[in-house]
Design a protein around this nucleic acid. Structure first.
Length: 660
RNA sequence: GCCCGAGUAGCUCAGCUGGCCAGAGCACCCGCCUUGUAAGCGGGUGGUCGUGGGUUCGAGUCCCACCUCGGGCUCCA
């Protein structure tokens, strides 16, 4: 029939609709719930507004507000409302771009007279936005010629620049400028799609203001950016804010202070941490474990100084390529010294200190090497971005034939190490040859193939970042997801094509010829400081028992239980556990509370009944209820098992373990 | 480096428009209390209000500069 069209739905079914039916009509035809949730539609792969008429035979899916694509539309539309509000409140303001981003959106402005937003302005702007939402202004799509577009934005230089660049850019030839109008007065340049009207925007909140350069270029004018978040419902918004709060509670800077682990004395300098006894102990435990694993993995330990003469860094290429990130030089006795930004040059010298034979390869040199990097003041952040960092750094020298096996073993090693620390979700990225590179293309191809094979062998999901490798090396970066789903880049495995030639490194082959070793550069924690920060946030401060500075606290109910408490404490100490035993100067509840706040995995209480029966009361971290009458032997077994197994969290009370 | 915000006791924070405003809780010290599963009671020490200038009869409070921290931007061979 000529007055009907047929569209294809995502589930493969077909649907007949009247001629001129829109995406909104389709949603309504399918069901009222879908109609309410719809914010846009996808027609033959193209996102469009709901009021777009559907062509006959199109593949159509409805975009709902609770999908990522739907939130995208909501956020984009909310950004328009933000711009309208700001233009109302600051006549003469110029607006630049306002895209949706992860969890929200932003819009960049330039205010008249060089004015800046302050945090207090956000409330006023939000109020103006709510008025616009209450007015339920439609989003009206319009198309113009380039000239019309330029005229429409005659007093908006940023918009004109966008129009002009689109004209010369990829979309050239189409010559169409699309805008969305919110009657009566606001119009913005935009590809869309948008929600049908501003009344559709329910749950949003302006978060903060920031500076941002026009087009991200620091030579261009700095604009004022407002960040906001928007969601499909008030509940979703509340949930998002709760997640932010949760992340805030896990902030390692806060927990580091509360748990007395480390701090950043201003007297020392920004980005330079000092570790307190408890933080130092955790660090030592991490390092001890790592050293033991490296020892078992056939690594040899080396130590190198923090400073070296400029000639070393000229040879390594750091002064040529990396000088911006290096601390400035020091003059001494006519020579120029630099704090090392990386350990590699020194490790190359160790390899090159004498002739090497193929029989020695693979040669694996390992060092917890502290390096110093000049990070610009605005970027340092807690322990995750510091100026003094300790790398669990290693350089592996091997023959080209050994490269594949070595990389595969290495990847295995990395994942095992990370799993031991309780990280379970990994994503890898294989970064390949960039446009500017050193070395031979054949070497790159072989190394990239070896890296890919290692990833396959490990069964690790990965993406290929084409051309994203460093100029000297293809690499694998391993990312992890923490307990609340955040992604952190940790380990890196790089095949280096630059250092061996620069240091003229060789080995004697079986045929007694000379060959260049392959150099693999790798760090597993990345930096010990950053890894510790990630662990603290991953566990929200509740470190596994084996990493807890205090593993058990023994609390006597009254002072006369103290000798028994000491005895229990000694039993645990005798098993190598870290235990504090206290007197009864404070009420029991206060002591329990204090140790719980300190995240002690096992808080043990002993009183009359325990003295008589040879038992303890056990508070396991994370459990609301205590366990009474646990035999000391059983307790000791549980804690040591917990520690030896490096369990992520302490043993829960065993089923039927305790009579009450 | 740039934009916004914040620096008051070890920590968390009150102190409105300049004048009994130098405070509270926790922590710490000293007493008392002897306690059965997340804060017993009382007393006390502690701050040139980030630093340096300025305005004023008078400045945590207003102005300027600097320092540090936080959020972004930029940067991250």
């Amino acid at each position: 029939m000529a007055d009907q069209i047929t569209v294809l739905l995502p589930d493969g079914s077909e649907r007949a609709l009247p001629q001129d039916a829109t995406a909104a009509d389709l949603a309504a035809a399918i069901g009222p719930r879908l109609a309410r949730a719809a914010v846009a539609a996808t027609v033959d792969g193209q996102e469009v507004d709901l009021d777009t008429p559907l062509p006959d035979g199109a593949r159509v899916s409805v975009v709902t507000s609770d999908s990522e694509a739907g939130r995208h539309v909501l956020r984009h539309s909310t950004a328009h409302v933000l711009a309208q509000a700001v233009l109302q409140l600051w006549p003469g303001a110029r607006f630049a771009i306002g895209p949706p981003v992860e969890d929200g959106f932003y819009y960049d402005f330039e205010l008249p007279g060089g004015a800046h937003f302050s945090e207090e302005d956000l409330a006023r702007i939000e109020e103006a936005m709510r008025r616009i939402v209450a007015e339920d202004q439609p989003f009206v799509r319009e198309e113009h010629s380039i000239d019309q577009g330029l005229a429409l934005f005659a007093d908006q230089p940023f918009k004109r620049e966008i129009i002009e660049s689109v004209d010369t850019g990829e979309g050239a030839g189409r010559g169409v400028v699309t805008t969305y109008r919110n009657p009566p007065g606001f119009v913005d340049l935009c590809r869309g799609p948008h929600v049908a009207s501003t009344g559709r925007l329910a749950a949003f909140k302006l978060m903060r203001v920031a500076g941002a350069y026009w087009r991200g270029d620091e030579r261009k004018p700095q604009l004022q950016r407002i960040y906001g978040t928007a969601w499909e419902s008030e509940q979703a918004l509340a949930e998002h804010l709760r997640r932010l709060e949760e992340a805030d509670k896990r902030d390692h800077r806060k927990l580091g202070l509360e748990l007395d682990l480390f701090h950043f004395p201003p007297e020392v300098g920004g980005g330079l941490a000092v570790f307190h006894p408890k933080g130092g102990l955790i660090r030592k435990l991490m390092e001890d474990y790592s050293r033991a694993e490296h020892e078992a993995g056939g690594y040899q330990f080396v130590w190198t100084p923090h400073l070296a003469k400029s000639s070393l860094f000229e040879k390594s290429g750091h002064l040529q390529w990396y000088a911006e990130s290096m601390y400035p030089p020091m003059e001494m006795e006519g020579a120029t010294y630099y704090p090392k930004p990386m350990n590699c040059p020194m490790h190359m010298l160790i390899y090159g200190s004498r002739q090497r034979s193929y029989r020695e390869l693979p040669l694996r040199l390992f060092e917890f090497g502290t390096v110093y990097r000049f990070e610009r003041s605005g970027v340092i952040h807690g322990l995750t971005r510091v100026r003094g960092i300790t790398q669990d750094d290693s350089h592996i020298f091997c023959t080209p034939e050994q490269l594949g096996d070595e990389l595969a073993a290495l990847l295995d090693f990395v994942l095992r190490l990370l799993r031991t620390f309780g990280l379970e979700e990994f994503e890898a990225e294989l970064a390949t040859r960039p446009e500017k590179f050193v070395g031979e293309p054949e070497d790159w191809d072989r190394a990239e193939a070896a890296l890919a094979a290692a990833l396959e062998a490990a069964g690790l999901a990965y993406t290929v970042a084409d051309g994203e490798g460093a100029f000297y090396a293809p690499k694998i970066d391993v990312h992890v997801r923490d307990a609340i789903g955040r992604r952190w880049q940790l380990s890196t495995l790089q095949v280096d094509f630059q250092l061996a030639p620069r240091f003229d490194l060789e080995y004697a082959t079986a045929e007694n010829t000379r060959a260049r070793p392959q150099v693999i550069h790798r760090a597993l924690f990345g930096s010990i400081e950053r890894f510790l920060a990630i662990l603290i946030e991953h566990y929200a401060g509740n470190l596994p028992t084996w990493l807890s500075p205090v593993q058990a606290a023994v609390l006597p109910v009254r002072d006369d239980h103290r000798p028994y408490a000491e005895k229990v404490g000694q039993r645990l100490v005798g098993r190598g556990l870290r235990v504090v035993t206290e007197g009864a100067e404070e009420p029991l509840n206060a002591r329990i509370r204090r140790h719980r706040l300190e995240r002690v995995p096992y808080v043990l209480v002993v009183g009359d009944e325990d003295v008589d029966a040879g038992t303890v009361g056990v508070n396991v971290r994370g459990e609301a209820r205590p366990e009474r009458g646990v035999a000391v032997d059983e307790l000791v077994g549980r804690i040591t098992d917990d520690v030896e197994g490096r369990r992520a969290q302490p043993h829960r009370p065993g089923a039927g373990a305790a009579p009450t």
